[in-house]
Structure formats: structure tokens, C-alpha cells
Amino acid sequence: MILVFGQSGQVARELARAGGVTCLGRDACDAGDPGAIRAAIESHEPRAVINAAAYTAVDRAESEEDAAFALNAIGPGAMADACAASGIPLVHISTDYVFDGSGKTPWQPSDAVAPINAYGRSKLAGEEAVCAAGGTHAILRTSWVVSAHGANFVKTMLRLGAERDALNIVADQIGGPTPARDIAAACLSIAEQLIADPAKSGTYHFAGQPPVSWAEFARAIFDRAGLRCSVTDIPSRDYPTPAARPLNSRLDCAETETIFGLPAPDWRAGLDDILKELSS
């Protein structure tokens, strides 16, 4: 059995759907409480752990940085310590937000990190805690998670596109929309491979391809959903948010395919699947 921290989030729900896992929601275990985490891992005796629990409210994290660090740094550190003590692997989901978003070249896993907001700082601290535990682990950085459930860009655009004839969408942030179902499948495969070969431990990238702007992604959503809503490109400065966003969220996923045999997913196919699920 593989133990999953998280239950209601997009990736956790896809992991539960895939089967063969036990998902712990907040009612079963506070993913920011080290004592509860250790007790959960010891009592369930899993073959591996996947951390799909996180504080993901990027803008709210600017005023709730302690809460973000509890879930995104202290919790993962406790999971990593407990997994290392039990000799089992941990797969920890991280984010493109650990980078500063400069340039236009896809980020390599080994590139220097420099988060530009509180959420990114909390996720980086989580990565550092996982590495410091010294156990078998994979940190899987991903970006722009979407699915048929939860709050995400696809569902927001479908709602707004049905209500309005035109929208202004940011066009200078470039990244890879990543279907939660693909992330879940990747986590399960990586967990099994780490059980067999702990030497595969490390930091990896897994994000949808090809890179696209939010505005281009919105157009694709409207086109595939048959919505008549025009999109006007705007710069990030015209859509101010409490937390700064990286402009370049491109992730180089070649090493993930080389080491684990997991190619980066095509977000267009994932989008079609999401729309099909929502329509049914």
C-alpha cells in the first residue's frame, strides 16, 4: 500500500481514483503536524509515501506565510524524516515557483532557485527539508495543475467564457498546464521505481507541453469547449496580484523521461479529457 497525504486536492483525488493507495485528509491527519505525520506513517506501514498535501493559496500566502510554511515545509520535512527512519521512499510534489521566472529557457532541475513570493519560499523550504532527511526521495516539480475538479484555470475559464463575450488574460507568463491525472500517474510510477532502485532519488520536473501563455491556454479552452469568448492579451502589470508570479515557468522534463521513462504530458490531450469528464 502507498500512503498519500492529501485527499481533497486535485492530485490527491486522481491518486485515489487510480487505486492502490490510502489517502489521508485533514480529518485523519494534519499534514502540518510532525507528530501526527510520524504516527500515521508508523501505523500504516506503507511501501512508499506520496505527499499531495499543500498550502496552494498563492496570494493568501503573502499574509499567511506561517500557515504556508507549516503545510509546505514543516510537514514535508516530518514526512521525509519518518520515511527515512522506516527505509521507504517519499515522492514530494513541488512547483515551478521555486524559480524567479527570469529568461525564456526551460528551467533544469539543477538550476539555481530564487522564489519571488511567500508560496515559492515555503515550497523551496519543503524541498530543502526533504533533501536534508537523507532518505530515498523524489521531488517532482510541476506547474499550472488542472483537472475536472477543484479550483483551477480550466474551470474558471469555462465559467467566465459562458458568462462573457470577451476577457483580458495575461500573456507574458509562459508555462506548462499539467493535468492532475498525469501527475498522479507519474507519482505512482516514480514511487514504485524508487522502491526498486533508491539510486533514482533526486529532483525532477514534470509539466505539460508545449509551453503556452495563460491567454493562449484560455483560447484553447474556449475553442475546444465551443465557447464564443474573445481573448485580449495583457501584461502581468495590468492584472496586479498580492503575490508576484514568475514570467517564465517553462520546465525541462528530459531527465524525468530518461530516468523514469515518463515523457512530459501533452496538455492538449489532457484538456480534452477534462472537458469530456465535465460534460458527462
Rank of each mutant, 00 (worst) to 15 (best):
E192Y: 04
I183C: 06
T256P: 14
V130C: 05
I2V: 13
S122Q: 05
R26F: 04
T156P: 00
V145D: 00
D233P: 01
R268H: 05
R13Y: 07
E163Y: 13
G75D: 00
V98L: 09
S279L: 06
K276Y: 09
I190T: 02
V21H: 10
R250T: 14
L167I: 03
G202L: 13
L275S: 03
M79T: 01
D182N: 13
A207T: 04
F206N: 03
L271C: 07
P115G: 07
S8M: 04
P263I: 06
I116Y: 10
D165E: 15
E277W: 13
Y204V: 06
A118D: 08
S63P: 00
D111V: 12
T142F: 06
C187A: 14
F206L: 10
D81F: 05
A244K: 11
G135M: 14
G134R: 14
E163S: 13
A78T: 04
D172N: 11
Q173F: 07
S236K: 11
C187G: 02
R268W: 05
V146M: 14
A148T: 13
L275E: 03
A80Q: 04
P46W: 14
A68L: 02
L227Y: 14
L194T: 03
T232H: 12
N51A: 00
R219H: 05
A138Y: 11
S249K: 11
A151M: 10
V145Y: 01
A171W: 08
V11F: 08
L251T: 11
I195F: 01
P115E: 13
A191G: 07
G75H: 03
E65H: 07
A61K: 05
Q209R: 12
S110V: 15
E255Q: 15
S122W: 11
D182S: 15
P46G: 08
I41T: 07
P109E: 13
A36H: 02
E128G: 00
H149N: 07
R13A: 05
